[in-house]
């Protein structure tokens, strides 16, 4: 299993770093970041594996990404939902959308969700919980919107099922046992004026509130002018505003 060549090589790279003390701090940082990445990819327990998550949002989530087998709650924004779906869908996961008849398919395709692997159940009616559970049995990521508050017993049954199947549930609206709650604020559109232009790009502050720890937030392009999601470069924006002002 162990290759001597590899060992010698790593020893060789460590030796000069010991000699130069100035580089030690940066190296420790990189080692820490690498360890964090290993922790993220390698599960300590079975239920903490993560699924591919957009890098702009992954840093805000507890555990560094969307976890398998747990529920997340998303407050109102369909674009934020699509930002969460885009990365797993691009990686080949099947996604399901239950009880969201107004889900904009064209926007989803534009943001990189593969429509061939997207299943819609727009009107589950009174059986939404059973339908969500049945869809969650077979698909990797499931979006649902509860038409009413579910009973605690049925929520914990669904949670157990998610954990068993390793399905990530994204709930539009509040959810009692959610891992984290994602919400938008300070949304500002660009490209549109008073009777001219058209909606082009939007900057928002995405806030993630989890059960443990303080809320984390970041300024994101959701979407940017090329229908991509990315973090806002705050310094550049400040400079641009100064130049404009």
């Amino acid at each position: 299993m162990f290759e001597y060549g590899e060992m010698n090589h790593s020893a060789a790279t460590l030796a000069p770093s010991g000699a130069r003390s100035g580089a030690r701090a940066t190296e420790r940082e990189s080692v820490e970041s690498l360890q964090a990445r290993i922790r993220q990819m390698q599960a300590t327990r079975l239920d903490t594996r993560t699924i591919p998550t957009h890098p702009a949002i992954a840093g805000l989530l507890p555990g560094g990404g969307l976890k398998q087998g747990v529920a997340y709650s998303v407050d109102r924004s369909a674009t934020l939902l699509m930002a969460l779906l885009a990365a797993p869908s691009a990686a080949g996961t099947w996604c399901g959308v239950v009880g969201v008849p107004e889900f904009g398919v064209e926007a989803a395709a534009g943001f990189g969700i593969d429509l061939d692997r997207l299943v819609l159940v727009p009107h589950p009616g009174g059986q939404w919980l059973a339908v969500t559970a049945a869809v969650a049995d077979v698909l990797g990521v499931v979006v649902t919107r509860p038409p009413r508050r579910a009973s605690d017993a049925s929520v914990s049954r669904l949670t157990a099922r998610l954990r068993q199947r390793g399905t990530t549930l994204l709930v539009l609206g509040p959810w009692p046992q959610s891992e984290a709650m994602l919400s938008l604020s300070e949304s500002s559109w660009s490209g549109i004026g008073q009777g001219n232009g058209h909606l082009n790009a939007r900057q928002v502050t995405v806030t993630v509130t989890s059960r443990a720890g303080r809320p984390r937030s970041a300024r994101l392009w959701l979407p940017d002018p090329h229908e991509q999601f990315r973090a806002v470069n705050v310094q550049r924006e400040a400079y641009r505003q100064e130049a404009a002002g």
């Binding site: 997207l118 819609l120 159940v121 009107h123 009616g125 059986q127 339908v131 049945a134 049995d137």
Partner: peptide, 17 residues
């Protein structure tokens, strides 16, 4: 799995776009 949902809700309830 999806056929099961179809037999619960009807053929046109499970859609792809």
């Amino acid at each position: 799995g999806l056929s099961r949902v179809q037999s619960m809700l009807g053929h046109g309830a499970v859609l792809t776009a």
